[in-house]
Amino acid sequence: MIPDALPALESRIEILLHDPAASPADLHAALAVLYERYCLQEQMLARLIHISDKYQMAERERGLSHVEQLQRKVRQVEKIVRISDGYQSMLQDLHTRLTAISNHDDLTGLPNRRHMQERLKQTIAQAERNGDTVSIALVDIDFFKKINDSAGHAIGDVVLTRVAECMRQSMREYDICARWGGEEFLMLFPSCDLQNAAQLAERARAAVAKIPTDDLHAGLNLSVSIGYTEFRLGEAIDSTLKRADDALYCAKSSGRNCVIGSSASNE
């Protein structure tokens, strides 16, 4: 269609309408052409609306698909984070278990020598800061070699376990008892002077002497010898340990199943 054809047709119809001499047939023919063109325009408009609607629908679907993709990605990231958190938690648990294993004696469940050395350092450093007292006691199971030789190592292990449990029960809540060596245990008494250490050591000795052994081996008597001492401010930990060891030696030499203390005055 020529662009200006429609305005020209409308002008011609306008003239025919106002011209009394105009032929009704000419007017009818012109109106028929005009009607036909309006119908054509209407069809084109409907087609345009249809195409536009399709575009809108496609865009909407594309938007929805983007939203779905985004939601899927978010779910995926959430899942990755959830699984990753699970692995981190697993590692943390493993670390906790390994730390506990590395700090404790496998047989008795008591803190081991390495862990006790750390606790000794910490407790003594704290006591030095606060001017507090600290005592230790070295405990040795009497005739343990004989027990192992006569009753066997399996019974020896049970003896170690029972003695360890007994000492754990006899301690105050904040005392620490560690397996120091084969049949040797070290007790750490924070906020405790020599006099109180004597009582705690004696309580442990008496408790061990009451451990039932009938089910273990005929004629088996359990006892421990204990040497205890008080930490002196400013001294090296090894000196305190040496004093407790000397006291233990005295206890052994004095017939065993007894407690002997060592202080600065009786050295």
Binding site: Q76, K79, I80, V81, I83, S84, Y87, M90, L91
Partner: peptide
């Protein structure tokens, strides 16, 4: 046994 985050992503 243990997978870090980027390994989890790759397995997914």
């Amino acid at each position: 046994v243990y997978l870090n985050t980027s390994s989890i992503r790759s397995m997914m």
